[in-house]
Amino acid sequence: MKAQRLEEIRPRIQALEAMPAVPAIVLPLTAMLHSPDQVDVEKVIDLVSYDGTIAAHCLRMANSPLFGRRNTETVRSAVFALGLKRIEAILLGCCLNRIVPPDKWALDAVTFWRHSLGCALVSRKMAKLIGYPDPEKAYLAGLLHDLGILVNIIACSEDYPRCIQAAREAHVALHRGEEEHLGFTHCQSGKILAEQWHFSSDVIEVIEFHHDVAAVPTCGPLVSLVHLSDLLCRLRDLGYGYYEAMGMDLAGDAAWATLVGHYPALATMDLARFTMDIDGAMEEIVAVVDAVFKP
């Protein structure tokens, strides 16, 4: 197999910005959420109500015990229950979902979103547990860490099924299959799109280095946090949809050492209990993903 070089597909990735399927509300809404002035919540509610799918997703999430709220019946109460940061994350998830044409999903869409949302939830949970100051950022980073997989699915649609096949047969992580058949990984291609879309620098770092924390230039905690959440998800049936033969001594992981450096309380964390909590939340994670992302 001739390895395709990253530079050859760069223009294809950059062209993704022009994808037609990005919902009409995204640009005004993200502009509003990031404006330096105070956000007008009423306008956000109006915009969310305008897109039926996104409104439905917000309601479904607001009603999930995972987000600690029940019996939310209106878009208004959903927006208040979820908070603006989470609305933005939902929005991004929906947009990303729509940039992949239904017939191109080489990796099953539900599997992908189950993994992404699972990673988002675990990242947030871990962030709260260790005292990371911005759990919603951890959530967003978890949700987007595999952005490059979407990029590869679209930009390398001929070769991508082979990557998945190779990884599945060898029971190894997906990026190993990408290295073999593409010559680059979703970490690299995801970074290109993330830069193009002006994601914040620490989220870009997560996208680029979540499989190689030892190479992170800043040693920031966010990428270590998402790296571990990603592993935990793949170990708890929220992975790429096939069996990965791995045994992971989390406490011996380089990312763990980084995190313990930032948050000493982690050293005494009960990892088995934490894992069992994730196991317990799995059913609900799966239900939310199925409700939100099932085509």
């Binding site: 592993l231 935990l232 793949r234 170990l235 708890r236 049936d237 992975g239 069996y243 990965e244 791995m246 045994g247 992971m248 001594d249 989390l250 406490a251 011996g252 990892l271 088995a272 894992t275």
Partner: peptide
């Protein structure tokens, strides 16, 4: 003992 995570199991 080191806690080691496997898919669906802890050793």
């Amino acid at each position: 003992f080191h806690l080691v995570h496997f898919p669906g199991a802890i050793g």
